[in-house]
Design a protein around this nucleic acid. Sequence first.
DNA 1: TCAAAAGTGTTCGACCTACACCCATGC
DNA 2: GCATGGGTGTAGGTCGAACACTTTTGA
Lengths: 215, 215
Amino acid sequence: MNQPLVSIDVVPFRYNRAADALEVILGRRQFEPSIGSLALPGVLLLAQERLGEAVGRALNTKAGLAPRDIATAGEVGVFDTPGRDPRGPTLSITRFAIIDTDTVGATAEAVPIAEVSGLPFDHDVIIAMAARRVYEKLFTDREVAEALLGPEFDTVHAFTAQQQLAAAAEPVGEPLSLANLARTLTNLGWVEATGELGASRGGRRPKVWRFTPSA
Amino acid sequence: MNQPLVSIDVVPFRYNRAADALEVILGRRQFEPSIGSLALPGVLLLAQERLGEAVGRALNTKAGLAPRDIATAGEVGVFDTPGRDPRGPTLSITRFAIIDTDTVGATAEAVPIAEVSGLPFDHDVIIAMAARRVYEKLFTDREVAEALLGPEFDTVHAFTAQQQLAAAAEPVGEPLSLANLARTLTNLGWVEATGELGASRGGRRPKVWRFTPSA
DNA sequence: TCAAAAGTGTTCGACCTACACCCATGC
DNA sequence: GCATGGGTGTAGGTCGAACACTTTTGA
């Protein structure tokens, strides 16, 4: 049976609290085509492998991440754009992953999502769609929120994560105001204010939030 | 490279106005496994083929439908449940399709969605997820609505379509009241009342709606 | 004391739901 | 007429956006 090659491509997001920046972890390609360029971690799917395993293998071999660094993952879509890979017909099954570690592999790089562009294949499009998926889940899916923001986060962390996802998902994102965010978080039901305050960014210090114990 | 087989499975929906019923078009399997059973139309993907083409081929060879019978289609998901196919590791890329014809192939059957169950592989799960996708789009995506309900439809058509999709998507669907549906349709912005009335179902005749000219 | 930045009070409108009641139809 | 069933009026509640204003912070 003559079938297209099937690859799993992963969009690994990470929130860098020190820089208040949402980052995508890219790997430097070791083979042609586009050798030496940064690209999404991806591997060809093996016959006996589950999709989730392939995600782990892609992140491990292409970005130096361990399985336990993957806080959560989810579906993005399937891409079959013709000519997306000059080697021939390929199908890309795409997932997002949310990464919880500070160290990446030697051949990998964490790039602020605002600066990502010009990647090989159709990876720019894939990242935009992945950002949209995560954006939609950020304040609706506790698992995604907890994975991206960590057990404790302040209002500004949440705001910049939301804003940078929106900007990556749509070239023209709405402004999004921080003013109502504390209220929005309160109404979620699964985060609560700790009473502590986060680092000042030049003015009043933002509230710190934690996830409620009951999962 | 040892890769799993990749199949495209299609969930073809059709709204049967005469019976006020949402139907799924199933094909009778010509090969093992599960030879003779009804199942979703599906084919193994070919290397040089786009996903959309494979959808057309599946519907043509397994359900006797022509490409122009496909009013619209969309993404459902990717399934890799182990053991989903006894022949070995397979990956199922799934789409829904909305069909606009009254005639199906000799080896195919249009089954009311409420009566569908016990299909081979994981097709029951796939249909539930497809129903959820279409349900979400029914009153938000003009293309899906127009494909499913046709150029003109009455309030009861819209209501039963919505209700049967909800029931198929979740074992326990909310009641959903017809009372506000005429209002909801008016507020969509892309349908308008024609002024005509549809067939009576034992009481007052429902309004007939059409899609506004401006696409 | 001032500018910057975060939080709060308040209002507004969109929208969804529910429920009561009215209207049209077939028998 | 009367049961059946769709349509409409109206009220209540939720939700998010907006905007002005207050509070906290660093310089």
